[in-house]
Design a protein around this nucleic acid. Sequence first.
RNA 1: GUGGAUUUAGCGCAGUUGGUUAGAGCGCCAGUUUGUGGCACUGGAGGCCGUGGGUUCAAAUCCCACAUUCCACCCCA
Length: 416
Amino acid sequence: MIQKPKGTRDILPDEVYKWQYIEGVVRDILENAGMGEIRVPVFEHTELFSRGVGETTDVVQKEMYTFEDKGGRSITLRPEGTAGVVRSYIENGMASQATPIKLWYEMPMYRYENVQKGRLREFRQIGTEVIGTESYLADVEVISLGAKIFEALNIPNIKLNINSIGCPVCRQKYQEALRDFIRPNLEKYCDTCKTRFEKNPMRILDCKEQKCKEMNQGAPIILDYLCEECREHFEKVKSLLMNLEIPFEIDSSIVRGLDYYTKTVFEFVSEDDGLTVLGGGRYDGLIKEIGGQDTPAVGFAMGVERLLEIFEKYNKDVIEDYNMDLYIATIGEEADLFATRLVMNLRDEGVFVEKDICSRSLKAQFKYADKKKARFVLTIGEDEVKKNYAKLKDMKTGEEVETKLKAEEIFSKLFE
RNA sequence: GUGGAUUUAGCGCAGUUGGUUAGAGCGCCAGUUUGUGGCACUGGAGGCCGUGGGUUCAAAUCCCACAUUCCACCCCA
């Protein structure tokens, strides 16, 4: 038996309707906000991600599915959506369209990680990108759409955390200050923190080790180091969120794992399991970084598997599956031929109808109809074909009515 | 990458100090007046006991390695 690769999942028919429900709700929300769906390749040149996402990030350093293709090119299965979407924005000259460009996507992502709760190697994200505006209004629009999605899906216990990590200028000043604060005790920090010191000192503040936590008391926080412009931007984001009555908390430990973020960053975290369901922020430097005009942008991505898991918990009754309207049971070849035509006609009318294709006994056909939750069964044998009449049985009540074997009449008996 | 748990029929499981052809339930298929479902009864199909080595006269059972699934760290959606 060849099993599916580690960290992948099959989504079976009895599950896929939940996906479709969520996707429908989210699509409506995003498209009503003017977002157009975009689909970009599953794989890109490795360089797009190493430059876009950042050489020093864990995603690039240890989680990418990278391989050489037969032409000797280094190819990577996308670990996130923004880099590819932005690449497409540049490559297709979308800058010449009405600004801002608003895009959304639902695409599978690939990260070579160890599997655990809420974490797969192939997982799907729904995301948005708003490109071409540096205004705080765009940050808030994107955040409010995130909040709207949880509301529309009836998912409670979602907490919004926001932070600002400034622009490269204020961030560098902050990192210096942070290193100065840590340096005297550096030897006493845990090994992982020591390795973070040069590469990304902001992560040290997030360490779970007790001793590191203690030493972190009183560390400088980035919000005190923001330049005037970044500070004002963040203030405006906060006050508009408050005006809109979107509750949030400031969490100065949000750093985000992708290097391209600037200024506003945010996470919607489920308080049920502590997992981040939706994360995003502003990325004013990315488009220039990968070769476009210097263009500001903001967006988010949500993990659909994570979203679905919480959704199911609170919406057990909302979803009902799509059941068969009619099953046509047949006896004999003549009836089979007749019923096959009838089924085709009824399907043309939009009826969910099945008939036996296993040449099974009448009893077995009824059993099948019952298991598949057919609302009605129509039984056709030689006599029925001759007389052009048959019995239509309501599977719930057991009542039977006579019907003419005409698609129109059957249709009206089913749906009147 | 590190650590813990897990793996027996389609599914969830039982399998006792290693000992003949590995079990029940649910599900599946069929039969119980060869034209009527759910219930009941009867029967049937379906297992390289995760994979590969080793110990033994003998391994689902003991040992080792690898894999899987789940969980935690790390990190993230």
